[in-house]
Design a protein around this nucleic acid. Sequence first.
RNA 1: GGCGAGGUAGCUCAGCUGGUUAGAGCGCAGGAUUCAUAAUCCUGAGGUCGAGAGUUCAAGUCUCUCUCUCGCUACCA
Length: 689
Amino acid sequence: MSEQPKRTLVTSALPYANGPIHIGHIAGAYLPADLYVRYLRARGRDVVWVCGSDEHGAAITLRARKEGTTPRAIVDRYHEEMQEAFTGLDIAFDHYDRTSSKEHHAFAQQFFLDLLEKGAFTEETRQQFFDPVEQQFLADRYIQGTCPKCDHDKAYGDQCEKCGSALSPDELINPVSTLSGATPEMRETTLWYLPMDRHEDWLRSYLEQGELDGSAHHDPKAWKSHVIGQCKSWLDGGLQSRAMTRDLDWGVPVPVEGAEGKVLYVWLDAPLGYITATKNWAERNGADWEPYWKDADTQLVHFIGKDNIVFHCIIFPILLKERGGYLLPHNVPANEFMNLEGDKISTSRNWAVWAKEYVDDFPGRSDEMRYVLASIMPEQKDAEFTWEDFQSRVNNELADVLGNFVNRVVVLTSKYFGGKVPAASGEWTETDVALRDLIAATPGQVGDAIEKFRFRDALQHAMGLVRAGNKYLTEEEPWKVVKQDEQRTADILNLTLQVTANAAIVLAPFLPRTSARMAEAMGTAELPWDAAGGDLVPAGQPLGALPILFEKVTDEQVEAQRAKMGPDAEALGLRDVEPEKPQTTFDDFQAMDLRVAEVVAAEKVKGADKLLQLTVRTGYDERTVVSGIAEHFSPEDVVGRKVTLLANLAPRKIRGVVSQGMVLMASTEDGGLRFVTPEEGAEPGDIIR
RNA sequence: GGCGAGGUAGCUCAGCUGGUUAGAGCGCAGGAUUCAUAAUCCUGAGGUCGAGAGUUCAAGUCUCUCUCUCGCUACCA
C-alpha cells in the first residue's frame, strides 16, 4: 500500500450490549478512533468509521433469564443507552449498527456459507451437556458444579471464580444446569471448527514482517509492541482449532439444514458486523461499500482494547483471508486498560465512571472528559483515572491555560482595538518569529503524532502552542507597550490572535465544542486542518462572542462523583460524610498526647454563648480547658464526666481565659455533640494510643 | 503453570535503532507580573530509571536471574 491511502476504514470494537459504557471503553476503543477520524476528516481524507452493538452471545441470554426478560429487551435497552453515551461525548461514528439486524444476519450467514464451501471449517461431533428439561445444549457458563480443584460448589463450566482455575464442564463434580436445575446429560452435537493451525505460516509473515501474499502490506514497526507480542505468543504456542458455532437459541442461526438450535460463535459474527455496518452506511449515504473492504488502496484500522487483540489480529484475519477478496487490517492500535482510583474498573462492583452518567452530571462538558481521557490514554500500558486528576487537569490545563489564554487575547483586543483584529506591521522581532515558527510547525507535529496513534503526544503538542501563547503575552506585555507604541501592540495581539485561531484547528479533534467556540470568537468559521500553520484571521475582522470556555470543577463535584462509585452505599450502611483527611504519619500521631481526664468543675464563660470553662483533672495536674460545647451541655451535665483530652495542645487564650488542652467530641449528623468517653475503668492520666 | 506487556521524579506518564549533566505536565518552594476565569511567566528542590548479576569504551535503553502489576492462555508453547 502507498504511503497515503486513498481511503481509510476505521472500526471500533463493537460494545457488548450487556451493560453500559464506561470511561475505560471510551478511552480504549472509541475516543482514540474518534480523534483519528476527526483528524482525517479535517484533512479532507476519505474516511469512514463504523461501529455497532454486539448483541449476541451467551452472556446476554444468561442475563435475560436472570432478569426474567428476553434477550431482545436487553439488547434494545443497551443499544439505546450506548448510543446516548457516545453522542453525549461527541463520539461521532459515521454509522452505528447492531448485529441483531436482519441485514447482519443475512450477511453473516452468507459469509459462513462461503467459508463452508471453501472448506474453511472442519465438522466435528462431540459430547456435550444437554438440559433434558429445557431441551437444549448447555454452553459452558450454563453449567455449575463443584470445582475439582478447590471444592468450591459454585464453579462454572468454564472457570472457577474462587480459585481462578479454568475448567471444562465435564470436570465439574455434580454438574447442574443453571437453567432448570436439572442434572444435564451428555449428548452428541455437531460443531464447525476453524482449524487455525493451517494458517500459522502466512499469519507469521503477515504479523512479523507485514507481508501478505508475498508483498509488503503494512509496516510492522508501526504496530504497538504489546499487540505484536501477544500475537507472537499465540503463534509460538501453536494455534488450536476453535469452534465457530454454538448450541444456543440467541444469535445468527447456522444456515445449514439440520443445524436447528445452532448459532454462529459470537466472535465469528461480531467482526462481520463491521462489514454489515459499512454496507448499511453506504446504503444510507448513496455510496459504494465495496472499495472500503476490497480495494487495495484502502487502509483498514481496528481500534480495540487489549482483551480483543487475538480476535482482531488472528481469528478475524483468518476468516477474511479464507473468504478471500477482503482486506486485512493494516493496524490494530489496541489500547491497554484504564484503572480507576487505584483499582480495576469493574461493572459488577460498580467501580466505574459510566459515560452516560458523566454526560448527565456534566451536561455540555464532553470536551473536559475527552481532554482528560486523551491526556491519560492507556496507549502503552495501563493508565489510571482519578477524579482528583480530572479536576486538576480541567482546572489547571483547560480553564487556566487554554480558557484563560483565549480570554486574555479577546479582552486585550477589545480593550485596545475595539474588538477588531489589528493590522500587523509585518516587522517581526526574534520572539515573534520563534512563535510564528511554532505556529507553522505545530499542525505537522500534532498530525504526525495522531497518525502514529500517539494521541497523548499529539495533545501535548497542541497545548504547547497555547502555552507558548501565554508565555509570549507575559513576556511582551502588550498592556504596557500600548502606552508607548500602538503598532507594536497591534503586532503582538495580531500574533496571539493567529495563535488562537491555529490552536482551534489543532485542538479540534480533541475538543470539538471548544474549538468551535474559539473559531467563533476569532470571527472565523471552523477551518480545515490544512489551513493551519500561518495567519488565519485577517486585519479588521471583528471578533465574535466568547463565553467562558471552561468552568472549574469544584471539590463538591469531585466528592459527589467519588461517592457514586463502589457498592451501593446504602446497602453497606454507609453514609454521606466529610471525606477522609489526607494521609498522616505515625510520627504526627505520636506527637499528640491524648489522655483520659475527669471534669471536676464547669462554668459558662462570660460573654460567650458557646463556651464552657472546664476544670479537668488529669491525674498529674489540674488545668483549665475552654470548650465550645455550651450550646449542647450545661455545666451540671459535664461535671464528673470522664473525657478524652488532647493534653499537649499549645495553650491559647480564648475570651480572656487560657485554655490548656482540648476535649474531644464526636459531632453527629444532626449537628449535635457527644463526648468521646473512655470505657469504665479508665482513670485520669491514662495515655490513649 | 506458560506466554505477552509493564514496573522511570510526591502524582500521571514520555524516553525512537545503547552515547554528553534522564525529560514533560501536575504538585511543592521561592520570585516576577496584573491584560486575564487568584489566572500567567520565571527559577529551584526532587529520581542509585523494580532488585541483583553480566555484555560494552559507554545501558533506563542489550542478556540472564529474581520480584511486583496487568492481560492472554492452558496441563501444550
